[in-house]
Design a protein around this nucleic acid. Structure first.
Lengths: 213, 213
DNA sequence: TAGTGCCGTGTACAACGTACACCTGGTGTA
DNA sequence: TACACCAGGTGTACGTTGTACACGGCACTA
């Protein structure tokens, strides 16, 4: 995890891990069936580092849960480039999920609704996390972050801006991209507002059941 | 893209592409600098397949935008396992984004707010898409989907359910996992509700500017 | 004392992206 | 007509990856 945090998950090879531990590469396979299982363990270990969501007002609890996830993703961006090869969350992630369920359990929601509420929050955090992780990776790989990047952007800009992207040019010219709102803060507040509206509605809107897959 | 859709992005090797086109592997490098640029092109081509977001009531427009993204991700789940090596969206994605900006542009929002609103929706769709993509990948790789999977799940369940996961067991026992709500439909409605609340508020809540990175 | 696992080692292989040197046929210019 | 040029296709080769497989030593038990 130390390597993945610092140099990205691509730098995390079995040989590298072994070298760092002072053993040979193949010795690792005495303790772990393969690399993907090892990555699964890393992911669950990261979940284990987060704090347990406390009981309390449900909106605060959900917000806490989201912020913990966000902190986790910021500390370990590699989590978002991994496909969770197993289909179920690991035990640590399960524990955290359970606590999040508990927070919304006193609202009299149907069980599917409890799941849906927590899932909606997770999906949002996953989404922000992903673009954050991509940004981190791109910065590490290309080295430079601002000086070179924005200059090339400028030239690109002139290339296809004219009238094919009217709104973008307008936003660009009025500085909307220069001082953006915090994507996580803004989105989280909206998602939670939307959930409040759902929970407080006298008759809750029906939602389609999941089609298979 | 045909290969990636059907067999996953891991099956998409340069040799495979060349073979499919009837040329040798290295001939591809006459047309594309490297694989990652080719993947960038694929991603942007997928954006090009979606329909242009029409003008109209802003909530409908945003919903349309989200549904188009969702359809795109369902058709091309591999898009979500790729790290967009370049930092800017391609021209097709740009065009779609521009149309989405246009939809919310008549609300008198500040430019940063326009960006934030569209970004929030995208992040949510990204998040749902990601877990969907993982599920698709897992099903392809492990072959079986239900019969074997749920049986192993059952045994796992007995293992650590007792009292460490009270809410999960409760939800499990009351069938909350068996007939889940559609994650996309549910979440999208909440996110849009939250955005409506934001837009209609007399004084819009301040949001922290993005801290760098 | 012989047997039985656990744990670490070393070599080897297939698959990947791609660098590099080479060939080849069509086109533009003298 | 001659010739240079070069976009586009070919073939071989290299380094890196995950990991299969055969092997060696150690501790412990019957």
């Amino acid at each position: 995890m130390k390597v993945a945090d610092a140099e990205g998950v691509d730098a995390l090879t079995m040989r590298r891990i072994a070298e760092m531990l002072g053993f040979t590469t193949m010795s690792l396979y005495r303790h772990v069936p393969g690399k993907s299982e090892l990555l699964d363990l890393m992911v669950d270990a990261a979940w284990g580092e987060t704090e347990h969501t406390p009981k309390g007002p449900w909106r605060d609890g959900l917000e806490f849960f989201a912020r913990q996830m966000w902190a986790m993703y910021r500390a370990h961006p590699w989590m978002l480039q991994l496909t969770t090869s197993r289909r179920m969350p690991g035990p640590q992630a399960m524990t955290r999920l359970d606590a999040a369920f508990a927070v919304v359990s006193e609202l009299g929601l149907a069980p599917e609704e409890i799941v849906a509420v927590v899932t909606a929050v997770s999906h949002f955090v996953d989404g922000v996390g992903r673009t954050m992780a991509d940004r981190v990776k791109a910065e590490r790989e290309t080295g430079v972050s601002d000086e070179e990047w924005w200059s090339t952007t400028d030239s690109l800009w002139e290339h296809f801006t004219p009238d094919r992207l009217p709104m973008m040019t307008h936003i660009w010219n009025t500085g909307g991209f220069e001082r953006p709102l915090d994507e996580f803060e803004f989105g989280l507040a909206r998602v939670l507002d939307g959930l409040v509206a759902f929970v407080e509605a006298e008759e809750r809107p029906a939602v389609r059941r999941s089609t298979c897959l």
